[in-house]
Amino acid sequence: MTAALSDPGEPPRLRGDLAIWVFILAELLAFGVFFAAYAVTRAYNVEAFNTAQAGLDRNIGAINTLLLISGSWCVVRAVQAARADRQTPAMRWMGVALLCGLGFLVAKVFEYQAKFALGLTMDSDTFHMFYFSLTFFHFMHVVLGVCILAILLFKLGRGAYGSHDVHGLETGAAYWHMVDLAWIVLFPLVYVMR
């Protein structure tokens, strides 16, 4: 599969637009600062964080991780298909990726609902301040990512991408992978690590 991702004869180039990479770096910086703040604060309150963390629903978290990773894989397949001028499979893969993103959002809403039902908010304690801040900040990125995937799907349908041009498609795909990557750090850090 790696072979299919990049043509060995092709000189190395940045996939997607340079501007999106500036954004991605800025986004990762924001997530990184948030993660570091969480880690440092946790180091001073290990007991309290562990107790509060036990209340999180790791099953929903795990399902969401699966959804995002699968979604990213589908996006990769969609880009590959588009590059090979196979428009219908490209749309199908993109459609599934979009469903994965939407599934993540639905699961997250259920998760929040359960937390609110217990009366937990950002003001409950430091752990929940971080839990809500980090996951909500990420949630908003998934919302934006889903919008981007929807636009890509729409444009695929109109034949905008193919072997002649995948620039916009790769640009949107890169953003989606960033959303995925941030979650892959967030999930173990906030839900799993003791």
Binding site: A30, V33, M122, D123, F130
Partner: peptide
């Protein structure tokens, strides 16, 4: 609310 200490610090630091 106190969470603004974090949100304000992190985002304005950027």
């Amino acid at each position: 609310p106190e969470f603004w200490h974090w949100w304000g610090s992190i985002f304005s630091a950027l």
